[in-house]
């Protein structure tokens, strides 16, 4: 869909402090164009806060630049207009609007006043295409609030598609999904990453092993390890942290090794 050249995310010394507590404590991350980067870590590691900082939701110091453009200090909607899109842990769609209306709003950021004040005469191509991609064409006129959990997540991804975001930040996109839904989401992810840079926060290790190209492990607001899936799994520090914090996850990690 997008014909723009993929571009990369560059974060330097990013800090987010809440009441004296450093949720993100001096993080450096480079995500090269076209990468699918998974960010993992125990609860409270600062993963979501990192994404919140990059998208302007919380105040941060340091630097986060995408495509050479500094993001920190800008307003949320300005950052979005630079081509940064995100999803949320709990699907955030407009429940009182239909699937079509949700997507149409996402596609319409650059509409002029006159277009806005008129009725939608036809379905924009990008919206029709996105509905096909996320498999919701037949649910076009259903209220988003009546969709199943997985479908809502896909609708959010569809909104990112029509928004034509170049950097996608997905916060736990497969949480609470069935195995089939995870597979479909994985396929969507593959499609998204063809011409975009993708950052995924995820706890699901199976999902990570199948779809991650690179992995960053965060712990207590800092970067613990970074590299390919195999490199990170072999890292002793990572194993230690996971052993100390979350047994189940650590077992999952060890199993992969």
């Amino acid at each position: 869909m997008s014909t723009q050249k993929p571009a990369g995310l560059r974060i330097r010394d990013l800090r987010v402090v809440f009441d004296g507590f450093a949720a993100v404590d001096g993080v450096d991350i480079d995500v090269s164009p076209g990468d699918v980067r998974f960010i993992i870590g125990p609860n409270g590691a600062g993963k979501t806060t990192l994404v919140d900082a990059v998208t302007g939701l919380v105040k941060a110091t340091g630097s986060a630049a995408f495509d050479g453009q500094e993001l920190l200090g800008r307003k949320v909607h300005h950052i979005t207009r630079l081509g940064i899109g995100r999803t949320f842990q709990t699907a955030a769609v407009f429940e009182e609007l239909t699937v079509l209306q949700n997507l149409d709003i996402a596609a319409g950021t650059n509409r002029g006043l006159l277009t806005l004040l008129r009725r939608r005469k036809s379905v924009p191509d990008s919206v029709a295409q996105a509905m096909e991609t996320i498999g919701l064409t037949s649910a076009r006129d259903r209220l988003a609030g009546t969709l199943a959990h997985g479908q809502k997540q896909w609708l959010e991804i569809g909104m990112l598609l029509v928004q034509d975001a170049k950097l996608l930040l997905l916060d736990e996109p497969v949480a609470g999904m069935s195995q089939d839904e995870r597979d479909t989401t994985g396929e969507l992810l593959g499609m998204l990453s063809e011409d975009r840079t993708v950052v995924v926060i995820e706890h699901d290790m199976d999902f990570l092993r199948r779809y991650a190209r690179t992995v960053t492990v965060m712990h207590a607001g800092r970067i613990l390890s970074e590299g390919s899936v195999a490199e990170v799994q072999a890292d002793l520090k990572v194993q230690e942290v996971y052993l100390g914090h979350a047994k189940a996850t650590s077992q999952a990690l060890v199993q992969e090794v």
Binding site: H77, V93, E96, L97, T109
Partner: peptide
């Protein structure tokens, strides 16, 4: 439609660039 979206989820609309 946008107005209803803002009514129901004002913060979400920001992340669409409005």
């Amino acid at each position: 439609e946008l107005l209803v979206a803002v009514r129901d989820a004002e913060e979400r609309v920001r992340f669409l660039g409005y």
